[in-house]
Amino acid sequence: MKRGPHLRYVLRQAWLLVGASPWLTAVSALTIALALTLVGLFAMVQFNASRLLRELGQSLTVQVYLKDGTPPPVAAQVEQRVRGRDGVRAVRALSREQDRARNRKLLDPELLQGLDEAAIPGQPVLEVEIEAELASRGDVEALVAWTKTLHGVESVEDVAFGAEKLRLLFAGVEIARTIGFVLSIVLLASAMFFVFSTIRLSVFSRRDEIDILGLVGATPTFIRIPFLVEGVLQGLCGAVLATLLLGGLHLELRGLVRDVYMLNVPWSLLPPGMVVWLFVGGPAVGLVASGLSVGRYLRT
């Protein structure tokens, strides 16, 4: 029957390793915590920005202005063509008078006093509502391209697409995502390197013990496990610290957004999913780093 090292033995040895260099362990855990916090911040900014964009996308409309005097059958043809586009949720055709009435509501009543009715802009228009699911970057690009094709239709005078700005936002978020991703990799790699070095020091300080274990018949796995657990413990401490940091930051920023900027938008720097990821990511960073460190030593 194959028997592995007892959990009690492994935890005791790992605890002794941690206790042998508590400061180094603390700094290592702090490095992981900072890396996880920054990665978590990037992820949450990304998450909240994407959610905001999705919400903006829900009010996405395209205004297709038709030339004055466009005969109803031609207008109906254009409407038909617009309706045929995938992702078009609804099309509302407004006559010149209806458009003028709508614009009138938008103008300041003081401005309307004594104003000739003909001076209020009004034009036959098709108000096109776009499906909210289309509000991702690639689809916005496709929508922009589609609106450009509408410019070519003879009876269409102009196409107003508010999502041009949305496209800029998407681009901005995309750039932020790329930068965040690269920085996350760098940060996690740095944290890993730190844990790697800490565990390596730990291994070197115990090489006499490792040699003895090897001589009395310990397998490499048996020797490695306490060091791996040490790495996991460091990662776990890092995850706890990162959770506290992000939680504190969330409370501070939430107060700032609500009380100073008077914004009542739902957002979170620490949703439950994030906590799970921190508690998976921290120990994973510790495990990989210690695995590389111990593996390297035991191979040589």
């Binding site: 007892h6 018949g217 310990a218």
Partner: peptide, 20 residues
């Protein structure tokens, strides 16, 4: 070649701990 951080009992027990 005793492990300086382990007491007498633990030094001897090493050989049995690896057997689980």
């Amino acid at each position: 070649r005793l492990v300086p951080r382990r007491n007498v009992f633990d030094n001897v027990a090493i050989a049995l701990e690896i057997l689980g």
